[in-house]
Amino acid sequence: MTDVTTIAEGDAGFRDYVALLKPRVMSLVVFTALVGLLVAPGGVNPVVGFVAVLCIAVGAGASGALNMWYDADIDAVMRRTRSRPVPSGRVRADEALALGLGLSGFAVTILALATNFLAAGLLAFTIFFYAVVYTIWLKRRTPQNIVIGGLSGALPPMIGWAAVTGSVTLAPVMMVALIFMWTPPHFWSLALFMKADYDAAGVPMLTATHGRRTTRRHILAYAVALVPVALGLGLTQIGGPFYLALSLVLNAGFVLGALRLVRRDEALAEADAYKAEKAFFRYSLWYLFLHFGALLLQATPGVPGWGG
C-alpha cells in the first residue's frame, strides 16, 4: 500500500470525517438491517432497536473508514474516488485507521451489551470480512473480489434479525442470499462504465481481466440465478403474495435489462456513454430497495402473508 500521508494535508472538517464512513453505502446497510430487525418475530423494544441499528450503522461506517485507509493509494488515481478525504490529503491515513478501529470496537461492544453476543459476533465478522478479507486480500488479487467480498454487505439484515431473536433461521439466510447474489451484477454494471478508473488503479475487476463482453454475460447469469433466490425469500415466513407479485415484476425487469446489456454493441456502448449500463445500475438500486420495502409492508398488520 502506498503511503499517502505524504500528500499535502489540509484542514479536515466534520464533513470529511463523515465522508470517511461512506454514508451512501451506510444508508443501504441501515435500511436492510432495519428491515431484518422489524420483520423478525417477537418484536423489540424501540430503544433497543434504535441502538441496534445505530451500532450496525457505526460498524458499517467503521468498515468504510478502514477501507479508505487501506485503499487511499488506488483511490488517488481513480476519478470517482480521488476527492475522498484521505487521497485528497484532508485526513491523514493514520487518522482514518484510528477512527475505523475505534468505531469498530465501540459498535460491537455496545451491540453485545444492548442485544446479544450472536448479533455482536455477526457485526464483528462483517467488519473483519469487509476490511480484511475483501479490502486487503481479495480486491487487488482476483476478479472474484466483489463476488466473495459481497458477503460483508449482505449480512446486515441477519444482524438485525439476530439482535431481536438471538438466533438465525431460514428467513434471514434468504435475505442475505438475496443481497449476496445481487451484489455482483450491481457492481459489475458500475464497472462497465468506470472501466478506465479500475484499469488505471490496477484493480482486477472482471471488466479489466476478462473484458466488457464477458462481464455483460456474467451480469446476465447472475440476474437469472437471482430469480429463484428472490422468489424463494417470498415463500419464507416473512414473505407473502404482495412481495411475490412485486418480486416477479422486478426480476423480469432485471433479467430483461441484463439481456439488453448482453446484446449491446461495444462500439455503440462507447458512442452513447454507456447509458444502458448506467440505467441498469440505477435499476439495480431500486430492485434491492423495493424488495426489502415489500418485506416491510408484508410485516404490516393486516397485510396477508404466510406468517399469519
Rank of each mutant, 00 (worst) to 15 (best):
T6Q: 15
I7A: 15
D11T: 14
A19P: 04
L21Q: 13
T32F: 07
V35G: 03
A40T: 03
G42P: 01
G43Y: 07
V44T: 14
P46K: 05
G49Q: 06
V51R: 06
C55F: 14
A57Q: 09
A60G: 13
A62L: 08
S63R: 02
L66T: 10
M68R: 01
A72G: 06
A72P: 02
M78Y: 12
R80S: 13
T81I: 02
R82Q: 15
R82F: 13
R82E: 15
R82V: 08
V86A: 03
V91M: 00
V91S: 02
A96N: 09
A96V: 03
L97F: 13
S104D: 11
S104K: 12
S104M: 13
A107R: 04
T115Y: 01
A119K: 07
G121I: 08
L123G: 07
L123C: 08
L123Y: 10
T126F: 13
F129Q: 05
A131D: 06
V132H: 14
Y134W: 00
T135G: 10
I136A: 15
G149W: 00
G150L: 01
S152M: 03
S152N: 05
A154C: 03
I159L: 05
W161M: 02
A163Q: 11
A163C: 08
V164L: 04
V164T: 04
V168C: 05
T169I: 04
V176P: 03
V176L: 05
A177C: 00
T183Y: 08
P185H: 09
P185E: 11
H186A: 06
S189A: 14
F193H: 15
A201Q: 14
P204Q: 12
P204T: 11
G211S: 14
I219P: 04
A223N: 04
A225E: 00
A225P: 02
L226F: 09
V229G: 04
L233Q: 10
G234V: 00
I238A: 01
F242T: 12
A245V: 12
F254A: 01
G257V: 08
G257L: 08
L261M: 11
D265Y: 03
E270P: 07
Y274W: 14
K278W: 14
A279Q: 12
F281A: 10
L285N: 15
W286Y: 15
Y287N: 13
L290G: 09
H291G: 11
F292C: 00
L297A: 10
G302H: 12
G308S: 14
